[in-house]
Amino acid sequence: FKEKSRSVLREWYAHNPYPSPREKRELAEATGLTTTQVSNWFKNRRQRDR
């Protein structure tokens, strides 16, 4: 993950740790990642924050 992608994901996570499928698609387009990568990033981040 590039730093720019991570910062976008972190910003979204601060507002909503559970993005909808549509939001995940938008994030994937904005970051250049796949929706699976975005989903996994959020899943891992939520697990880490437990």
Rank of each mutant, 00 (worst) to 15 (best):
V8L: 13
Q47A: 10
L9K: 02
R22D: 15
S39I: 01
R48D: 11
S5G: 07
N16M: 02
W12G: 11
S20V: 09
S20A: 06
A28L: 01
E3R: 05
K43F: 07
Q37L: 04
F42N: 00
F1Y: 15
K43E: 14
K24N: 11
P17I: 14
S7F: 11
S5D: 09
R48W: 08
T34E: 09
Q37S: 08
L27F: 04
E11K: 06
Q47R: 15
D49T: 04
R10N: 13
Y13W: 06
Q47W: 13
N16P: 00
T31Y: 02
A28P: 02
A28G: 08
R45K: 14
N44R: 13
D49I: 04
A30E: 14
S5Q: 12
S39D: 14
R46M: 07
Q37M: 10
N40V: 11
E3V: 04
E3C: 05
A30I: 11
K4Q: 09
A30P: 01
E29M: 03
V8C: 08
A28S: 13
T35A: 13
R48P: 03
L27Y: 07
S20C: 08
E11L: 02
T34Y: 01
T31K: 00
R22E: 15
K43G: 08
A14Y: 09
F1W: 05
S5F: 08
L9Q: 00
H15V: 14
W12C: 05
T31E: 06
S20P: 02
S7G: 12
E3D: 07
E11D: 12
R6A: 12
P17N: 11
E29A: 04
R25A: 15
E29C: 06
R50W: 14
R48C: 10
G32Y: 05
F42C: 02
S7T: 13
W41D: 04
P17L: 06
N40T: 12
P17Q: 14
T31F: 00
D49K: 03
L33G: 03
T35P: 11
N44P: 01
K43V: 10
S20Q: 04
Q37G: 06
N16F: 05
Q47S: 10
K4E: 15
S5L: 11
R25E: 15
S20G: 08
E3F: 07
R6W: 12
Y18V: 09
E11V: 04
T36Y: 10
R22C: 15
H15S: 14
R6P: 08
K2Q: 10
L33P: 02
S5R: 06
A14P: 02
E26H: 04
K4I: 11
K24D: 06
P21Q: 08
P21G: 06
H15A: 13
Y13Q: 03
W12E: 10
L9H: 00
W12A: 09
F42D: 01
V8E: 07
N44E: 10
E29K: 02
L9Y: 00
T34P: 00
F42H: 00
L33A: 06
Y13M: 02
R50Q: 06
E26C: 05
P19E: 01
E29S: 02
S7L: 14
R46I: 05
Q37R: 08
V8F: 12
E11N: 07
R22S: 15
K4N: 12
S7P: 06
S7V: 13
A28K: 00
Q37V: 07
S39Q: 07
F42P: 01
N40Q: 05
A14V: 11
F1Q: 09
N16Y: 02
Q37D: 05
P21F: 12
P17F: 03
R6K: 15
P21H: 09
K2R: 05
A14T: 10
V8Y: 10
T31R: 00
K2I: 03
R45D: 03
E3N: 09
S39F: 03
A28D: 01
K4P: 07
L9V: 01
A14K: 09
R22K: 15
R46N: 09
R22Y: 15
T35G: 12
S39W: 02
T34H: 05
V38P: 12
Q47D: 15
N44K: 10
A28F: 01
G32N: 14
Q47C: 09
R46Y: 04
S5C: 04
P21V: 12
Q47Y: 06
E29N: 06
Y13L: 04
E3Y: 12
K24F: 14
A30F: 09
L9R: 00
W12I: 05
R10W: 10
N44T: 07
W41A: 01
P19V: 03
V8Q: 06
N40Y: 07
Q37H: 07
N40E: 09
K4L: 08
K2P: 06
R10F: 12
P19L: 04
P17H: 04
T35C: 11
A28I: 02
R22V: 14
L27P: 00
S20I: 05
L27K: 00
E3A: 06
R48Y: 05
E23Q: 05
G32T: 03
E3L: 06
L27D: 00
A28Y: 01
T31C: 08
P17C: 08
K43N: 08
R50A: 06
R45H: 12
P17A: 15
N44I: 05
K2L: 07
A14H: 08
R45F: 05
P19S: 01
R50K: 13
F42W: 02
E11S: 10
F1D: 04
E26F: 07
T31Q: 03
F1R: 03
E26R: 03
R6E: 15
Q37A: 10
N16R: 01
P19W: 00
T36M: 10
P21K: 05
R22W: 14
G32K: 11
P21C: 13
R6L: 14
E26S: 04
L9G: 00
W12R: 06
G32R: 09
E23V: 04
R25I: 14
T35F: 15
E29T: 03
P21W: 07
S39C: 09
L9T: 00
Y18S: 10
F42I: 03
T34R: 07
T36S: 14
Q37C: 06
T34C: 07
L33I: 08
G32Q: 13
R10P: 06
S20F: 04
S7K: 10
P19Q: 01
L9M: 09
P19A: 02
L33Y: 06
S5K: 10
W41C: 01
R10M: 11
V8P: 04
T35E: 14
N40G: 09
L33M: 12
V8G: 02
E23N: 01
P17K: 09
L33F: 08
A30M: 11
S39A: 07
E23L: 00
S39H: 07
L9N: 00
S20K: 06
Q47K: 10
R45G: 05
F1T: 05
S20W: 01
P19M: 00
A30Y: 07
E3Q: 05
R6N: 11
S7Y: 09
Q47M: 09
P19Y: 00
K4T: 13
T34G: 06
G32S: 12
Y13A: 03
F1S: 09
R25H: 14
A28W: 00
N16C: 09
N40L: 07
